[in-house]
């Protein structure tokens, strides 16, 4: 499968910081992958994801997106095809899911009739139809996570970035979210995912990138990595490669 994202010599040093948060990282993400980026606290996961989404600029290196014809696409143009689900709730709690989705959908330039249809479908799949006109601020954590996800995929993204999408949710909501993400990937969406839930990552991802102290320390399919390091689980592999010491 051809690459959809090419990351070359990517480095990031925040102003005032003595060390690089991301140090000369290079790898490719293939179209249709479910890539899990894992690493201890401070490894550079959020920095990498923020650069890939265009939230921050790298200090050095480049990120190249390619379309189905393998032509290069500028990040600005690619933004229409990117979806981002941040770890924090990134919506307006004073508004309803419907109002939030109408707003963010309009910013992608989706025509109103199409947008309305899309919102109804999404809220139905994510089990939020019955509360579509109620204020999100009064929802449970699981419901808020589903709203967060719905906004991230309102534009039918080709590449979807998920930063801890199931943190702090109940089992039912987690199941609904992961099932829907699986469906999206089946439909062709490339998913880049970070989490501290190793079991969830092991079940969901077909490809694993391990970051530690700003450097890429492992990248391969999960099966290859496990057999290469003679480990049975992602968690065991993670501890073996990153150590058992506390990270701040």
């Amino acid at each position: 499968m051809a690459a959809i994202v090419e990351i070359q010599n990517l480095s990031k040093q925040y102003s005032g910081a003595s060390e690089y948060s991301l140090d000369n990282v290079s790898f490719q993400i293939k179209r249709g992958d479910k890539l899990g980026i894992f690493g201890p606290n401070g490894a550079g996961k959020t920095t990498l994801m923020s650069i890939l989404c265009g939230i921050i600029s790298p200090s050095d290196g480049s990120v190249t997106f390619r379309n189905k014809n393998e032509e290069k696409i500028e990040l600005r143009s690619m933004l229409f095809k990117l979806g981002y689900v941040p770890q924090d709730f990134s919506f307006y709690p004073e508004l309803s899911p419907y109002q939030n989705l109408m707003y963010f959908g309009a910013l992608y330039g989706i025509p109103k009739p199409e947008l309305k249809k899309k919102i109804e479908e999404l809220l139905s799949v994510l089990g939020l139809s019955h509360v579509m006109h109620k204020k999100v601020g009064k929802f449970s954590g699981g419901m808020k996570r589903r709203v967060n996800l719905a906004i991230g995929i309102i534009n039918d993204p080709e590449v979807l970035f998920l930063d801890e999408p199931t943190v702090g949710v109940d089992v039912q909501s987690k199941n609904a979210i992961m099932t829907y993400l699986e469906e999206l990937n089946q439909q062709g969406t490339t998913i880049i995912y970070t989490s501290h839930h190793m079991n969830e990552g092991q079940e969901f991802c077909n490809c694993i990138a391990l970051l530690d102290k700003g450097s890429l320390i492992a990248l391969d399919t999960l099966d290859n990595l496990l057999s290469q390091h003679e480990e049975k689980s992602l968690e065991a592999l993670f501890l073996r490669l990153t150590g058992i010491e506390y990270r701040d």
Partner: peptide, 13 residues
């Protein structure tokens, strides 16, 4: 400061 603004930066606006 909220996440909604972070999201806005990933949207073509």
């Amino acid at each position: 400061l909220s996440g909604s603004f972070i999201r806005l930066r990933t949207i073509p606006t």
